[in-house]
Simulated scan of single mutants.
Amino acid sequence: MNIYDVSKHAGVSIATVSRVLNGNPNVSEKTRNKVLNVMAELGYTPNVFARGLGLNTMQTIGIMCSDSSDPYLANAIYYLERALRSFEYDAILCCTGYDLDAKQKYFNLLRSKRVDAIILAGSKFVEMRPKDNSYLIEAAKDLPLMLVNGYLEGENIYSTLCDDHAAMHHAATGLLKSGRRRILYLYTSYSFSGVNKMEGYKDAHRDLGLPLDESLICQCDKDISVARDTLLGLHEQGLEFDAVITSDDSLAVGAVKYAHEAGISIPDQLSVIGYNNSLLSRCTDPEITSIDSKVEALCTTTINTLMGVFSGMNVPSRTTIASDLIKRQTTNF
C-alpha cells in the first residue's frame, strides 16, 4: 500500500495526497476529508522518514541521558517528552552510560535518524577536556543542541541550568548560621553541576570567614548503602561532623541510615540536606530537607527555547533558574 493507491482510490492527484500528508493549507476541507477517509479505509500509514524529507523536518527530537534509572534523569525525561508532545514532536531516547565513546556512538546514531535537534539531559555530557566536546560543537553547525543543567559555549548550543552554586551556598550558609561548624560534604562526581555545587559549599565558609576543613569533603558512589557505610567508616575513624550536605538525595538517604545505625539523633545532633527534592527525600523517617533544583522548570524552559529556535526567534543561549530549599525534619534552622 502506497501513496499511488491512495491517489487512485480517492480520485485525486499524487500531489494532492502529498499536500494532505504534509498539512498544506492549500487543500479544501472536502478534499482533505476524502483523502483521509480513503487512507483509513485502505489502512495506509505514511512513511514517516519520506514525509520528513519532504517537509525538511522529522518532527522528532533526540534525547540523550546517561542513566534513566537515576530519579533526577527519569523525571527529566518525563518532563521533556511531555513538553515535546504538547508541540506534536516525537522523541527518541538513548541511555548512553558515562563512557565518552558510547556517548559519541549514540549521538551519531541520533544524527543518522535525521532528528531535528538533540537534547543532552544532565551535566555528564560536558567533558572536562575541551577537545572531548569538539564533536558537539561541530554537530551544532547542522542542528540545535539543548543542554539540560549543563553548559557548553558554542554557536547553536543552548543551555538551561539550575544555579547549583547559589543553591549549595544558600543551604550551607543556613547550616553554618544555625551553629553547625563541622559540615561534611558528600558528593558523587566532578561534572559541571558537581563542580558548581562544591564551590558553593566552599564559598559559604569563605564568605562567613570560617575555616574550611578539606577532610570533610568526601566522594562516594551514588548509592544509598555506600553512602551509609562511608559515613560509618568516617565516624569510626574519629572524624567529627554535625551536619551532612549532599550532592544528591540518594546520599542524603544514606546519611539518615547512618544516623539511625550510629544512634545519632536527627536533627538535634546531626542535620542532613539532600539535593534534587526527589521522591527519595520523602521516603525516610524523618523526611529530608532538600534543594529543589526545579527539574520540571528546566525541562519546560528547554523545550520552549527549542521551539523558539525553530521559529527563528532570538532566544538566549543560557538560561539560569533559581532553586528552592525545601525544609523538612532533618534540619531545624
Results as ranks from 00 to 15, higher is better:
16 T>W: 07
60 T>K: 10
132 D>T: 07
36 L>R: 06
187 Y>L: 00
2 N>P: 06
92 I>T: 03
333 F>Q: 09
327 K>D: 13
40 A>E: 13
207 D>Y: 14
246 T>P: 02
174 G>M: 01
28 S>L: 08
238 G>M: 10
21 L>W: 01
293 S>L: 04
151 Y>H: 13
187 Y>C: 00
293 S>F: 01
196 N>H: 06
81 E>D: 09
247 S>Q: 00
71 P>I: 03
220 C>E: 09
291 I>K: 01
312 G>D: 09
332 N>W: 12
247 S>P: 00
252 A>I: 00
307 M>L: 13
211 P>C: 02
28 S>V: 11
103 K>V: 11
121 A>V: 08
45 T>A: 14
167 A>L: 08
171 A>Y: 01
139 A>R: 08
224 I>N: 07
117 A>D: 04
145 L>A: 11
11 G>T: 07
19 R>G: 03
126 V>N: 03
92 I>K: 02
32 R>Y: 04
118 I>M: 01
211 P>D: 01
25 P>M: 08
296 E>P: 05
42 L>S: 04
306 L>A: 05
276 N>A: 15
310 F>Y: 13
174 G>N: 02
13 S>P: 05
274 G>N: 03
88 E>G: 07
250 S>W: 03
6 V>Y: 15
266 I>V: 10
269 Q>I: 09
112 S>D: 14
17 V>F: 03
63 I>H: 12
240 E>G: 05
110 L>K: 05
286 P>E: 08
127 E>K: 15
115 V>I: 14
223 D>K: 13
49 F>H: 14
125 F>W: 12
235 H>Q: 06
204 A>C: 11
42 L>N: 04
16 T>V: 10
267 P>A: 05
45 T>P: 14
88 E>P: 10
264 I>F: 10
25 P>K: 06
29 E>H: 10
236 E>L: 04
8 K>M: 08
298 L>W: 01
203 D>L: 03
243 A>L: 02
80 L>H: 06
